[in-house]
């Protein structure tokens, strides 16, 4: 795994050839702003549906080993 990761990282360093000072980064290609939702409630899932996929359903919630351990 390490060898493969090194090979890929070595390859992507190809980018270092470019002079990119002052170039704005592009995080998304859609030129949109303010795509928002009205503050209108939608129905939540019934409890049994919300918990249906839980690997460890516990006391009406999602069980996990004690936090901090």
């Amino acid at each position: 795994m390490t060898r493969e990761l090194s090979a890929v990282l070595g390859y992507v360093e190809h980018m270092n050839e470019l002079e990119l000072d002052g170039v704005e980064p592009t995080a998304r290609v859609v030129d949109l702003v303010n795509v928002l939702r009205e503050d209108q409630p939608r129905p939540s899932l019934p409890l049994d549906v919300a918990l249906a996929n839980a690997p460890d359903e516990a006391d009406g919630g999602f069980g996990v080993p004690a936090a901090g351990s």
Binding site: V8, L9, V12, M15, N16, L18, L20, P25
Partner: peptide, 28 residues
């Protein structure tokens, strides 16, 4: 492999050299 690559590219100290640079390339 990809989770590791991505985690590395975003980690403190490498973000500019990898992630940010890649987004600049995207602009070009």
């Amino acid at each position: 492999r990809r989770i590791m690559l991505g985690t590395y590219a975003l980690s403190s100290g490498y973000y500019d050299a990898y992630y940010n640079r890649a987004q600049q390339v995207r602009t070009k």
